[in-house]
Design a protein around this nucleic acid. Structure first.
Lengths: 260, 260
DNA sequence: GAACCGCGTTCGTATTCGTGAACTGAGTTC
DNA sequence: GAACTCAGTTCACGAATACGAACGCGGTTC
C-alpha cells in the first residue's frame, strides 16, 4: 500500500512538488545559495532560478541582505499558525496538557506521527530553570522518542517494524541502535500502556509518553520530559500515573472516535 | 487583478505559485473541498486536482477523515519552526522580550512587516488570567496595530501612505477608519518614538509599540498589550518607558546595522 | 427511478515549463 | 591584468503541464 515515492502516482505536479521540497530541504538542512540548493536537491540551477524567484515573490522564501542566500520566508509562520488553529485534536487536548504540566511541573509535549517521525504540535514548558529545549514544529524520529514509541505501540506489529529503520544513528551514547531492541522496547510499551525513553535523544533526560485515545489507531500522543536528577522519591511513578490518568480522562470524553 | 501578464516579473512558475497560493488561501480563509477551493481561487478544478494530490503526498495538505475537505498539513509546522530557529533578530531580541514581559507582567509581542501587514514572530504571555489571545504567525494589518504603526513611523511619509489603504474595515467600533487620521496617528508616533493603539483591534485592550533598532529601516517591532482596566496609577507611563528603555538597550548593542 | 446536485477523476491537446549550454559580473588568486 | 571561481541570468527546444469537457459516483429531491 501507499506506493508513494516514484512513478506510481500518475499525475503529480513537478514544479509544485519541487517548491514544497525546497521548503522542506531548507527547513531540514538550512539555507543556501541557488547553486548550493541546486546541488543539494539534484535540480538544475536554471530550473531553480525561476522557482526561487516565484517563492520569494510569494513570501515563502527570503534572501539574505546580500541577496544570495535563500532561507525560509514569513508565510511559513502564517501557515503554521493556521494549521494549529484548525486542529481539533489540539483544541481537545490543550486543557489536559495544562493539567499534566501543572501536576508534574515538567515539560509536556504533544506530538503527531508523520511517516516515521513525530512532529511536536504543542508544548508546555517546565518551570524549572533546567529544562529541555524544544519547539512546536520540531521533527524527531518516532522510534527513539517516548512520544513516538507510544504511538508505534498501538500499531500492529508488522506496521511497527516498517517504521523502525534497520540503521539507526545514535543521537546520544545511550541511543538504542538495533532495530530488534527498539521493537522490544515498543512491545514493552504496548504491554505497559505507556512508553519510555531514557537519555536516548537528550542526555540526562528521561521521557514518558502515552497516546491520546481519540482515534482507533492513535496518531497523537503526549509526553513528559524530566531531567533524571529530578526523578527520585517515586516521582517517576507519579508522572507515569499522571499520564495514564490524563489518558483515561480523555478516553472518557472521546465521543468522536469514528474515524479510520 | 494579476491576471494580465503585463507584469515586470517575466519568469515565474505557475504551478509552484499556485501551490503556495493554495497554502495561503487555506491559511487565510480556511479549508475547503477541491471545488470550493477551485472557485475561491479561480483555478479550474481539473488543474487543482493534480496539485492537491501532490501537496497531500508531500504532507503540506491533509484531508478530513471523509477525504473531501482539504486543510493544511503538518509540514507547515516544520517549516515554521525552522524559520524561527534561523532568525537572527528573534535570537537577539528574545532576552529583551523576557525583560519587558517580566517588568510589565503583560503580553509582549514581537512582529515583522510583511507587505502592509505584520506577522507575529514571538510572544510572551501575560501572567494575568485576563489576557489577549494571540499566536506566533498571526497576521494583522500594520496600520491598525501599535506594532505595525511603530514600523510605519520609521518610514518616509510617502511610503507610509502607500501602506495604509483608503478603505479600512473596522475591527472594533473604535477602529480608526479614515486614512488621513491613521497617517496622523503614525505621524504622532514618529514624533513620540513609540506607537499606540487603543481598542482598535481588540476591545478593552490598548497596545504600545516600538521598533527594534537593528536595521536602518526597521522591519521588526515589539509591543505590549494591556487591558485598559490595568492601566491606572501611571502604569501606562511605566510601560512606555520600559519599551523605550528596551529599545535603547538594543540600540546600544546593535553592532551589525549594516544592512539595507 | 429519474433527474439532479456536489464531489472527485480521467483524457487529449494546446500551452507552458524544464533544461543544458552559453553569458554577465563581482571577487580572488597568481 | 589574466585566469579562475562562484554567484545569478538568459535562451531555444523537447518534455511535461494546464485545462475544457466528459465521466463515475454517492446522495438527495421530485
Amino acid at each position: 500500500m501507499t506506493q508513494t515515492s516514484a512513478d506510481s502516482t500518475p499525475s503529480t505536479v513537478k514544479s509544485a512538488a519541487r517548491a514544497l521540497d525546497l521548503l522542506d530541504e531548507i527547513a531540514l538542512r538550512g539555507p543556501g545559495t541557488q547553486l548550493q540548493l541546486s546541488s543539494r536537491m539534484g535540480i538544475p540551477k536554471s530550473s531553480l532560478h525561476a522557482l526561487v524567484r516565484t517563492m520569494v515573490v510569494k513570501g515563502w522564501l527570503e534572501t539574505d541582505p546580500t541577496g544570495t542566500v535563500y532561507k525560509l520566508g514569513m508565510h511559513c509562520l502564517v501557515a503554521s499558525s493556521a494549521y494549529l488553529d484548525g486542529d481539533a485534536v489540539l483544541a481537545r487536548a490543550a486543557p489536559i496538557l495544562d493539567e499534566v504540566a501543572a501536576a508534574t511541573q515538567e515539560t509536556v509535549h504533544l506530538g503527531r506521527l508523520d511517516g516515521d517521525h513525530v512532529i511536536y504540535t504543542g508544548k508546555r514548558e517546565s518551570v524549572h530553570p533546567l529544562r529541555m529545549h524544544s519547539a512546536v514544529g520540531r521533527r524527531l524520529p518516532a522510534y527513539s522518542t517516548a512520544l513516538g514509541r507510544a504511538i508505534l505501540a498501538e500499531m500492529p506489529v508488522e506496521q511497527r517494524a516498517a517504521l523502525v529503520p534497520t540503521d539507526i544513528k545514535a543521537m546520544t551514547p545511550h541511543t538504542t541502535v538495533t532495530k530488534d531492541e527498539v521493537l522490544e522496547i515498543i512491545d514493552t510499551a504496548a504491554v505497559q500502556g505507556y512508553a519510555t525513553e531514557s537519555e536516548e535523544s537528550c542526555l540526562g533526560v528521561r521521557c514518558f509518553g502515552v497516546t491520546l485515545p481519540f482515534t482507533r489507531h492513535a496518531t497523537d500522543a503526549m509526553s513528559v520530559s524530566v531531567p533524571i536528577s529530578r526523578l527520585g522519591d517515586g516521582r517517576q511513578d507519579m508522572i507515569i500515573e499522571t499520564l495514564l490518568a490524563a489518558r483515561a480522562k480523555l478516553a472518557a470524553t472521546a465521543d468522536w472516535s469514528a474515524s479510520v
